[in-house]
């Protein structure tokens, strides 16, 4: 058991890692001038995956909301962008923030219902919610139904006229939003609100007696995470230029793989999400031809970690060497 005072002391240590963040941002800004198309694709995919992993970590590892339905918000964000561009004629620059709002709004509608389900049943409930949204989008003929739709040429051109510049801008949008998510999550965990979140996680009763509204804290976290997932969905599908219900609301791509990466890397720690995401991409590049076998390996790894080393790979490293790059760990 941890008191709030200890929690505060543990998480509020000041540190100066701004330089690392700054260098990272500079590298990303400069990337289109020295990297090839394939590398840019891979790198933006990696960063957006990492951002989703950190968001899920925030939800499950910190707020105790085990969602397996985050694909609802990634997909909705993607669709919101396409609908607003194709049917309302908005520019993608305006559609992205609106996609973020739309995903947050959807979460605010689902949350009061889903929060009535406890623990593991909440998880399955979020899955039903995501399936519901998928079915709705698959039913709308104007959006291509199950086959999906492409982003109209006019909207594509609205980003930038030249192809080179356009691809660079889209790259900056994906990586920029991903980095903003990462830094935002890091900042949140070290802010007052983050302290409340960790207090709720560490000791519900004590948190409640300190006047922290648990329901509201969880609600706000759920909505913010959903909104950011929606934003990521919008830019991810902007890069793909095509969307379909099965791709937009993919349980595997936007939730299962993310969860496995977080768990294998170490749940409740930002470093864990980073390591998990790196490992996931390495495995994917190495074993992509193996298809089903590769997923079996990943599933088995996640099970082994849960059974024998619940803190994940980063937990192992930390116990062995006492390292901690970003002191925001989740105390199990």
């Amino acid at each position: 058991m941890t008191t709030l005072a200890e929690t505060t002391k543990r998480y509020a240590r000041p540190d100066a890692r701004a330089l690392v963040a700054l260098l990272l941002v500079l590298a990303v800004v400069a990337a289109p001038f020295w990297a090839g198309r394939a590398e840019l694709r891979l790198f933006s995919e990696f960063l957006s995956f990492l951002a989703l992993a950190v968001l899920w970590n925030l939800l499950a590892g910190y707020a105790g909301l085990l969602s397996v339905g985050q694909q609802a918000f990634v997909g909705l964000g993607g669709y919101a962008l396409f609908v607003l561009c194709a049917h309302a004629g908005l520019s993608p620059y305006l559609a992205i923030p609106l996609a973020i709002v739309a995903a947050g709004a959807l979460a605010a509608v689902f949350a009061p219902l889903l929060f009535r389900l406890d623990g593991a049943y909440f998880a399955v409930g979020t899955w039903v919610a995501a399936e519901t949204v998928l079915l709705v989008f698959a039913m709308i003929p104007a959006l291509g139904g199950g086959a999906g739709m492409s982003l109209p040429a006019a909207s594509v051109k609205a980003i930038a006229a030249g192809k080179e510049l356009r691809e660079s801008i889209i790259f900056w949008l994906v990586t920029g939003l991903s980095l903003a998510t990462l830094l935002g999550a890091y900042g949140l965990l070290r802010s007052r609100a983050g302290l409340a979140l960790m207090a709720v996680r560490d000791n519900r009763l004590a948190a409640a007696s300190l006047g922290i509204d648990i329901w509201r804290t969880r609600f706000v976290t759920y909505v913010i995470v959903a909104a950011m997932s929606g934003g990521l969905g919008a830019v991810i599908f902007l890069q793909k230029l095509r969307i379909s219900p099965s791709a937009a609301f993919s349980l595997n791509d936007w939730t299962v793989m993310v969860i496995f990466a977080v768990v294998i890397g170490g749940i409740g720690r930002l470093e864990g999400a980073v390591i998990g995401a790196i490992l996931y991409f390495l495995l994917r590049e190495m074993m992509a031809d193996l298809g089903a076998i590769y997923l079996i390996v990943l599933g088995s790894l996640a099970i082994l970690v849960m059974l024998f080393s619940r803190k994940g790979l980063w937990g192992l490293v930390e116990t062995r060497f006492g390292w901690s790059l970003m002191p925001t760990e989740r105390k199990p």
């Binding site: 599933g299 996640a302 849960m306």
Partner: peptide, 13 residues
Amino acid sequence: LPPLLVTFGVAVI
């Protein structure tokens, strides 16, 4: 989390 994740892994397998 552990029972949920382990059975999730079993499902994928």
